[in-house]
Design a protein around this nucleic acid. Sequence first.
DNA 1: GCAAAAGTGTTACGAATACACCCATGA
DNA 2: TCATGGGTGTATTCGTAACACTTTTGC
Lengths: 234, 234
Amino acid sequence: MLDQYKDHDRILVAVDSIIFGFDRSGLKLLLIKRDFEPEKGNWSLMGGFLNKDESLDEAADRVLQKLTGLKNVYLEQLYGFGEVDRDPVERTVSIAYYALINIRQHDKELMDKYSARWFPIDDLPDLIFDHKDMVEAAKERLKYRASHEPVGFELLPEKFTMPELQILYEGIYETQLDKRNFRRRILSMDILTKTNEKQKKYSKKGAYFYKFNEDKYEDKVDKGESLTFKPINL
Amino acid sequence: MLDQYKDHDRILVAVDSIIFGFDRSGLKLLLIKRDFEPEKGNWSLMGGFLNKDESLDEAADRVLQKLTGLKNVYLEQLYGFGEVDRDPVERTVSIAYYALINIRQHDKELMDKYSARWFPIDDLPDLIFDHKDMVEAAKERLKYRASHEPVGFELLPEKFTMPELQILYEGIYETQLDKRNFRRRILSMDILTKTNEKQKKYSKKGAYFYKFNEDKYEDKVDKGESLTFKPINL
DNA sequence: GCAAAAGTGTTACGAATACACCCATGA
DNA sequence: TCATGGGTGTATTCGTAACACTTTTGC
């Protein structure tokens, strides 16, 4: 080994994931109950350690899959948390990732195995270490990302209604939106396909289902059209 | 040590810095000539390894100071680069930071010691490893940051002229701006103080010097005014 | 028939853009 | 006097925001 590399510290590198989900009642976070000391029994983000033979992204994928069974989900690196004493056991640098998943698609058995639970984003329990900071950073990043790219659809089933989409964006932006302005803006982007089916579960009248039209979206991106998804204030 | 920690790999963690500077001719990057193998003699970002007893931010500070002699400069974490083979010598995760410094203030002797040189941002040499990716990420981040916060002033001396400020923003946004619109927008934010002195070096008429008024800016932030610094297209 | 959610259009305001000429001065 | 860079104002367009009533249908 080269001299310039030899005398430096090797350090544990962790990967922690903020996992977002969404249902009609709002944005949710998937947390696990830690089953070893320290902080045993307390709520925590899902995490794991980086192995020498995998990239950071691969480690994040692996960790997410371990808890949810899901592959190929939206996963973005967030920030490297590197305070010296962030983990009381041993010096650990943690690279946080956040994931957007369809709340209905993950594996129930794995949920039990890790004593995992969905929490409303605005009603989280105390979290271990610096995981609260990670969640805050993830919320910020999601706001930013959602205002530039159509990441919201990652959190929805294939078919969704306008009211649902609006509730989702209201959750992300932590604000209330005017439904007329919201619909106009979303529809004017011309990246949704309206179906003839109606969602009748939540109203007598029923709301039309829409689908995200990824091809149309990609076309627009290729053409250089700038699509913004900014919040619309009430 | 706890079982859950015991069997995991300890890994070299590096910190690499993208150092931005600015002079009248545009945005610049400070690069060093690597003086050890592999890639000896090739251009590289300034970097170093994380020690067990320092945080990531502290390591980034230390590395920056080592090259420039500067403390307390604008420094923001960018992204964790973690491909398995990014460093051919040994598995290394690198956390990239970017710094904004006043190009006149750094230490010349240290520059020589590291064979460092300023390069125009649009005319960089080949860089080692994945440093090109890091630079790209830093340019993007700087665009974003500059459109939300007055980070531009970090790159300027205390006193600067409107034409200089405009050249800076044009460099950051990689676009040309209309000077009437630019001045109006900047001045309407009401965070600059005009001095009575003129810069006469670059024109017969001379251009007034301005100063960034940090107090005014903080007041506005406290009052919740949203100050955006978006690019203005020609 | 009524409650409850879905759906729809117009106006007003402010921000962003486009655009061209005069000013000051050193050489 | 002229070349060079510095400085200024207005009209237009477009996106955003504010705002209230009608529709559908299960109960």
